[in-house]
């Protein structure tokens, strides 16, 4: 992740936080999803409105018609401008697209955006879209801000991703073995960085090419057993099971 820009921001309580900026790719991805939802909403509204008017006769009568058009324009304008404002305010800086892509708008001091920031960002969106001005600004400024972000004082950051044990499938035999591993007292030799690698391995195990799985687990297990001085493990033990139990043992070693 060394190719992603980071930014430090100071909260009003003088706590320094570091964020990974959303980046152009995530922003375009999120915007494409939002524009898709937004334009289909507008299309459905327009078609629905036309259908309603065609079915109800008195809506077509002379004194009512200007009012009907006025309401139609108001609804369209509301959806056009309101989509980003409403979502960003209610979902604390996220729209459906941003939520899916896991990015968020925050203020420069890491607080949540309010309606004021959302309105400024939304009003300047058309300006940013003209001649891809926003795209160029995001590409060539250090904090990746489009015009709307400059004026509103906001930045877009990536949301941290949490991995829970539910996302990693562990075999039942691993927990028994984990207990035995903790009893050896050598699990403490594993560093957090090494634990993170085992977690990455378990999380990605399903996606690995079946032909490569054994090779990867054997390599990791071999390196790990050297670390915890258990090279003479029982030969029957499967490398993958071994890594699963080390993962559990590391998590459970200080619990009691």
């Amino acid at each position: 992740m060394k190719f992603l820009n980071r930014v430090k921001s100071q909260t009003p309580e003088s706590v320094e936080l570091e964020f990974v900026l959303a980046g152009l790719g995530n922003r375009i991805y999120a915007l494409s999803i939002d524009y898709l939802i937004w334009s289909s909403t507008l299309l459905i509204l327009l078609l629905g409105w036309a259908f309603i008017i065609s079915q109800i006769n008195w809506l077509q009568s002379e004194p009512i018609r200007p009012w009907v058009s006025a309401i139609q324009i108001l609804i369209l304008f509301g959806v056009y401008i309101g989509y980003f404002i409403i979502f960003e305010t209610l979902w604390r800086g996220q729209t459906p697209g941003k939520r899916y892509v896991k990015i968020r708008v925050i203020r420069e001091d890491a607080r949540n955006v309010g309606i004021q920031q959302s309105i400024l960002r939304s009003l300047l969106r058309p300006v940013d879209d003209i001649f891809c001005l926003g795209l160029l600004l995001i590409l060539f400024t250090a904090q990746e801000k489009r015009l709307g972000d400059w004026v509103a004082g906001t930045i877009l950051v990536q949301e941290g991703q949490a991995i829970t044990n539910q996302q990693i499938t562990l075999s039942p035999a691993a927990s028994d073995l984990a207990v035995r591993l903790i009893e050896t007292g050598k699990i403490a030799a594993i560093t957090p960085h090494e634990f993170a690698t085992i977690r990455k391995y378990l999380y990605r195990y399903i996606g690995l090419d079946p032909a490569m799985r054994n090779e990867v687990s054997d390599r990791l297990a071999h390196q790990l057993l050297q670390r915890i001085e258990l090279e003479n493990r029982p030969l029957t033990m499967d490398s993958h099971l071994m890594l699963e139990s080390v993962y559990l043992a590391y998590q459970q070693q200080f619990r009691e």
């Binding site: 992740m1 190719f3 992603l4 959303a22 980046g23 152009l24 790719g25 995530n26 922003r27 375009i28 991805y29 999120a30 892509v101 990015i103 590409l139």
Partner: peptide, 9 residues
């Protein structure tokens, strides 16, 4: 997906 593009740029 987005980070692939950002890394590219």
């Amino acid at each position: 997906i987005g980070n692939v593009i950002t890394t590219g740029t």
